[in-house]
């Protein structure tokens, strides 16, 4: 998250979105999107995780605190989890986390969840595009971003 691609807040501004992708489905879906040359905005920074169920809500909040403009968590479709129920368990946590963040005033569109299978390269590109558009319309994240005190 260190490099700045273009000045914040300008037309050309590209949001930085941290994407937690499950190894078995969404990461493979992203791979397929790449191989198939489906175009999507260069806004995501992918972190591969074993399962969407392994995404501690803390990771999401921490990403926001570290300056991510948005967070995307993507896993296998319900019923297709490699670990049988990881995504089901994740879904409950995410439902409450999303509500909580919105409750304290963080724009709901900054945190998104999706199910993308290994065969859905096009869907992955679409999801990234949609998430990027929504985050872009919100502008750079200001809330919850730790600024630090150094200079």
């Amino acid at each position: 998250m260190r490099e700045e691609l273009s000045p914040r807040g300008t037309e050309a501004w590209q949001p930085k979105i941290v994407a937690f992708l499950c190894h078995w489905c969404s990461y493979a879906g992203a791979d397929l999107a790449g191989i198939s040359r489906f175009q999507y905005p260069p806004s995501i920074r992918v972190i591969r995780v074993p399962c969407s169920g392994a995404v501690n809500p803390f990771y999401i909040v921490k990403a926001l605190q570290c300056g991510a403009d948005g967070v995307l968590v993507s896993g296998c479709h319900p019923g297709d989890c490699h670990y049988l129920a990881g995504n089901y368990l994740a879904r409950r946590k995410f439902a409450l986390l999303k509500g909580l963040l919105e409750h304290v005033g963080i724009e709901p569109d900054r945190v998104q969840f999706s199910w993308v299978s290994a065969a859905e390269g096009q869907k992955f590109a679409d999801v990234v595009k949609m998430v990027t558009d929504r985050v872009r319309s919100l502008g750079p994240a200001e809330k919850l971003v730790k600024r630090g005190r150094g200079r």
């Binding site: 089901y88 409950r92 995410f94 439902a95 999303k98 949609m130």
Partner: peptide, 16 residues
């Protein structure tokens, strides 16, 4: 506990 279990038809509409 709530987070230790699930139902297949838990709310899914917030997912893209």
């Amino acid at each position: 506990p709530l987070f230790g279990t699930f139902l297949p038809d838990d709310p899914n509409d917030f997912i893209l």
